[in-house]
Design a protein around this nucleic acid. Structure first.
Length: 139
DNA sequence: GCCAACGTTGGC
DNA sequence: GCCAACGTTGGC
């Protein structure tokens, strides 16, 4: 199972809103970047991803699951981009901040550190388990 | 609010 | 198909 990181500005779409959407989940629409698109196309149902708040907070606040694989984004007039559906799984008891991530040698190769503008990113198994423990889960 | 980094657009 | 110009993102 692959792991991912979804970025969102809380003022546009927050973790709280994701939680309020419940098990039905929501469309992760609005992605207009080919790198992010390729990552979404690689997602399978059941894959997990971190939910990261950009600009405000700048921290990983929760975990989402992919519940629908890549399909066309009806909000994209050009028809070139698609989206997946995700639902909230659980919150991190201790959100992991960008500041902490940047100072941790084990996480120095994270895409979040090296290409912070990419809105949907892959996360390695090592990074995933490391951050889960830092966040207070499974550890 | 500023600005660097990056992606996209469009003229050639 | 190249590349300059432009717009957007997101950390600071």
């Amino acid at each position: 199972m692959a792991h991912w990181l979804f970025k969102s500005e809380p003022s546009t779409w927050s973790w709280q809103q994701q939680c309020d959407a419940g098990d039905k989940g929501t469309h992760w629409n609005g992605v207009r970047n080919h790198g992010a698109k390729l990552n979404m196309m690689a997602m399978k149902i059941g894959d997990r991803g971190f939910f990261y708040h950009s600009n405000e907070g700048k921290e990983i606040v929760g975990i989402v699951a992919v519940i629908k694989e890549y399909y066309p984004d009806h909000t994209d007039a050009s028809g070139r981009f698609g989206m997946v559906d995700v639902k909230a799984v659980e919150a991190l008891p201790h959100p992991v901040t960008l500041e902490v991530i940047k100072t941790d040698p084990a996480l120095k190769d994270m895409v979040l550190v090296n290409n912070s503008r990419l809105s949907v990113q892959p996360v390695t198994e090592a990074e995933w388990t490391h951050i889960l423990r830092m966040g207070g889960l499974k550890g």
